[in-house]
């Protein structure tokens, strides 16, 4: 009897195909993830002249990234772990890392989709355009920022075993990030909080997004924010991977 082992690339391509199908079937939750940034973009249309297009666009993308990492990724991980989907895949002859890479690839595609939609709506609604370098750098910054939130999602799914607890916690963290981040950065909640928000994961991701939209504005602050974003992403991912259990039963 011949033993057939797929190459890791082939195994990954098979997993990707069905993970994308799963994501496509979850269109409703995808739409919900994309809806909040679009609503912000449309409702802030009148304020763009005052606060600047980069502020609005970076806020929209930040909010979307938070939703993808916390609501989308963390919940999908927790749910599939709870149902035993991962265990079933793990007894098949595929390297374990391909299972996780496939999941992450779907989320990275979501990040690209979110960023593209924000750009398209921004152009249609408010005629906002960026330079080609601005678009390219923003896509890269969105991926880096997305890695931070995916790492955070992984950490939540690693820390908490119950799918419902992961769901409620990720929603709470999402809400706190968005509310404290959005209001805190304006100084509405005080100067101290403004300072904290600036160097929080929300603030650093937003800073690198803003600087990427206008590449000429990259300065020491943006560079520090980039380094911090990478550090946050590294810490969250490390803890998330260390703490994650494939099976909670």
């Amino acid at each position: 009897m011949q033993t057939t082992i797929q190459s890791p690339v082939k195994a990954l391509s098979i997993l990707l195909r069905y993970d994308f199908t799963t994501q496509w079937r979850n269109r409703r939750s995808v739409i919900l993830v994309l809806l909040v940034p679009i609503i912000i973009l449309i409702s802030w249309k009148g304020a763009i002249d005052k606060i600047g297009p980069t502020f609005v666009l970076s806020t929209c993308i930040s909010v979307g990234l938070t939703a993808i990492g916390l609501m989308g990724y963390a919940n999908a991980l927790a749910r599939d772990r709870d149902k035993g989907v991962f265990q079933r895949l793990r007894v098949a002859p595929v390297p374990t890392w391909t299972i996780m890479i496939s999941r992450l690839a779907v989320q990275l595609a979501m990040i690209l989709l979110l960023t593209t939609i924000v750009f398209v709506v921004a152009y249609n609604q408010s005629n906002i355009t960026l330079s080609p370098a601005g678009y390219l750098l923003t896509f890269i910054a969105a991926m880096v920022g997305g890695a931070l939130y995916l790492g955070l999602g992984q950490m939540i799914a690693g820390l908490l075993k119950n799918a419902e607890t992961v769901n409620s916690t990720s929603r709470l963290v999402y809400f706190v990030f968005i509310m404290v981040g959005m209001f805190g950065e304006t100084g509405l909640l005080g100067e101290k909080l403004k300072e904290i928000v600036q160097w929080s994961p929300y603030g650093t991701v937003k800073a690198i997004l803003s600087a990427s939209m206008k590449p000429g504005t990259w300065d020491q602050h943006a560079l520090t924010a980039l380094v911090l974003t990478l550090v946050y992403a590294g810490i969250f991912s490390f803890l998330g991977i260390r703490l994650f259990k494939w099976n909670v039963k």
Binding site: M1, T3, T4, I5, Q6, A11, I14, L15, R17, Y18, T21, T22, R25, N26, D80, K83, G84, V85, Q87, R88, L89, V91, A92, P93, V94, K249
Partner: peptide, 29 residues
């Protein structure tokens, strides 16, 4: 690759159709 496993509390991706699940695992194996 030489074992087939039916777990006690296993499930497949609930969004996938049965034929897609079979195709997925056929591909893997």
């Amino acid at each position: 690759a030489n074992m087939g496993v039916q777990l006690q509390s296993t499930s497949f991706q609930p969004e996938l159709k049965v034929k897609e699940i079979i195709q997925l695992y056929a591909g893997i194996y």
